[in-house]
């Protein structure tokens, strides 16, 4: 693969995993705008572990664990309030993480942090497939059923004995873990971390990929991230016109397909649709 193609593939993989980090809480109706913060935690944890001689695979796992714990710690108190409060709290959390990283000199501060081991695209793709498989599997279970039910009608779901808060906490925590994986992949592919990279815009894009792809099926975020990472590359326009096009696409898509590109009805209408029973 040429350098350019490798670059695009790596970015695509990271975007897909980040999209799933956003998808998990969204699938039960909660918007996490702190994906970047969880990514940063995963990235820096993995990089530091790796720097201390921990093998690459274990470092990434360590990064995922750290962001999972952070996700749990944030979601338990915040999900008491939910809705818009959760969105703002995760946003604030992410900004705090980035700001703290910027101020810690041991982690490079504003000048950046060099990461030891390099990870090539093939193992990254394998990790992405693992994440994808985990989400597909979760969605096919009763847990997935509960997530969708909670998104559709939280209080109505509680009537059936579903512990709504637990479902939401679990989803946000798992999503945070995925974000940590995405961050760790980023760290080890580009081998260089800057705290400024993990900003609101990064979270926003992760959320957009998930929503534009559609929340109704576990494949939606994959489609969203694929389309909105690759199409601008093919257009090869300048950066700014590309973003303008992206903005217009978002607005039009919400107008024409507010439920996202891929919906259950669409799959249902396909000739080779899968059946549940």
């Amino acid at each position: 693969m040429s350098g350019y193609a490798t670059q695009i593939a790596a970015i695509l993989i990271i975007n897909v995993v980040a999209a799933y980090a956003a998808y998990m809480p969204l699938a039960c109706g909660q918007l996490n705008l702190g994906i970047a913060g969880f990514m940063a935690i995963g990235a820096y944890t993995s990089a530091v572990l790796n720097g201390h001689g921990v093998p690459l695979g274990l470092s990434i796992l360590g990064g995922a664990c750290a962001s999972t714990i952070a996700g749990l710690a944030v979601s338990i108190p915040v999900l008491r309030a939910r809705g818009i409060y959760l969105t703002i709290a995760t946003l604030a959390f992410s900004e705090v993480v980035a700001a703290v990283l910027l101020n810690v000199n041991a982690l490079g501060g504003a000048s950046g942090f060099v990461v030891n081991d390099h990870m090539s695209v093939a193992p990254m793709a394998a990790v992405m497939v693992l994440v994808l498989a985990a989400v597909v599997w979760l969605s096919s279970t009763r847990f997935g059923l509960c997530m969708t039910a909670v998104r559709n009608d939280g209080r109505g779901t509680a009537v059936f004995g579903v512990k709504v808060r637990r479902v939401e906490i679990a989803a946000l925590t798992i999503g945070a873990g995925f974000a940590g994986v995405a961050g760790a992949l980023y760290a080890h592919h580009f081998n260089y971390l800057e705290a400024q990279h993990f900003n609101v815009l990064l979270s926003t894009y992760a959320v957009l990929y998930a929503l534009l792809g559609g929340l109704q099926t576990p494949v939606g975020p994959l489609i969203g991230a694929l389309v909105f990472t690759l199409v601008p590359e093919f257009l090869r326009s300048t950066d700014q016109w590309r973003y303008v096009g992206f903005g217009v696409c978002i607005i039009l898509l919400m107008l024409l397909r507010p439920e996202g590109l891929l919906t259950r009805r669409l799959i249902h209408d396909l000739p080779f649709r899968r059946r549940l029973a």
């Binding site: 700014q240 973003y243 303008v244 607005i251």
Partner: peptide, 30 residues
């Protein structure tokens, strides 16, 4: 482009559209 959908249960739609406008306007200005 945003209010029309607020009556529907999925409250993320207007938020996403408003993000679309943010991205659009900022980059047009650039």
């Amino acid at each position: 482009f945003t209010f029309r959908w607020l009556k529907n249960s999925d409250s993320h739609i207007p938020l996403v559209s408003s993000l679309g406008f943010l991205i659009l306007f900022e980059n047009l200005v650039v």
